[in-house]
Design a protein around this nucleic acid. Sequence first.
DNA 1: ATATATTTGTACATATGTGTACAATATATG
DNA 2: CATATATTGTACACATATGTACAAATATAT
Lengths: 197, 197
Amino acid sequence: MPRSTKFDRDKAIEIVMHKIWKDGFQSSSVKAISELLRITRSSFYNAFGDRETLFKEVFAHYSATTPLMNLMLVEQGETVKPVFTKTLRELCAIRANDSLHSGCLAMNGVAEIGGSDSELACFLQQQLALSNARAEELIRWALEGGELAADTNVEGLALAVTNLFVGLNIMSNVIKDEGQLWLAAKTTLQGLNLFAE
Amino acid sequence: MPRSTKFDRDKAIEIVMHKIWKDGFQSSSVKAISELLRITRSSFYNAFGDRETLFKEVFAHYSATTPLMNLMLVEQGETVKPVFTKTLRELCAIRANDSLHSGCLAMNGVAEIGGSDSELACFLQQQLALSNARAEELIRWALEGGELAADTNVEGLALAVTNLFVGLNIMSNVIKDEGQLWLAAKTTLQGLNLFAE
DNA sequence: ATATATTTGTACATATGTGTACAATATATG
DNA sequence: CATATATTGTACACATATGTACAAATATAT
């Protein structure tokens, strides 16, 4: 019967997430993480394989908890504009009131390692593309549901929404005032005819 | 009479800029940079002091060459919307066609180290705040010049513009198609009533 | 040739970090 | 107690990286 792990794997994922969110990827070495988790490097390799594998797992964990998940849960037929509005409202609140972290783990990652050709970078790029595709789908539903004019450029609007998300997530590294973040979001949403409270 | 340097300092700044743009800050060690410049670490420390000081100098150099400089050169009385439009048009073209780099050095930096309390992070944060203030000033001029309605929320519009810049600069790490980048920018500019070709 | 100021080079001591091999250990079961 | 199995621990060999001290080298003027 196998020996059981000395540490709680789910908890470790959480701890590592906070570490790379705070210090970035390059600064989160196997040695540093192992010390943080109070395990030897041997245990690290055994449990997680390598850094990239672990980071991907951390991202999956992170993705399940971001405001963007709201967009994933919408079903066709629901009103779309309030979903966008509420999601961004929430995103601004979370980013502004997060005293532990800065910005968004995923977008920070895109900026830090997005240019490299590592598997993790590809993974992050795919995530962004999926988000954009989802935004496009929602906008298409909004158009079909009469929330948007028939001549709306769905692709352009989706890219603008994606850009809005990305910008807010990065800008929140610097601007920590919820009112200002929300003002930027609201102004853009209104301009894009996606604001509805 | 002092000995002169063996290397061209301006050229060194340029080389270091490309290095950190490609590999990020943490990965650009004194050792790596010295090897890249083909100088000893002793010369590095003597010429540049330390990494942070050098990176700040690199940023000053970079700032002088980004499309955002267009906004700095506008004078009161000029028409503002075409300046925004042209600047963003140019930014999308540069980012899409840059095969050496990914994204924007400054915004990548904000994401990578923006959460830390280093001097460099503070420097980057100030740069972003200055950009936003400048956008606000231009928008105010546009309003006074009749390009924008008198009830325009200047602060909100400036924040939205800043967010647009930030988003594009990060998104361009992933989306390399100039048409798509420009579509996102154009859609947003039109929505914000700042588009004029 | 000499003085001078700056730059470059070398060595020292130390720190962080990596992958791997394999022994030691914890646990359930017969 | 013996056995099987997965986890933890330790050591090895190596790599990257840092700041500092100070000697050596160099360009220039006199």
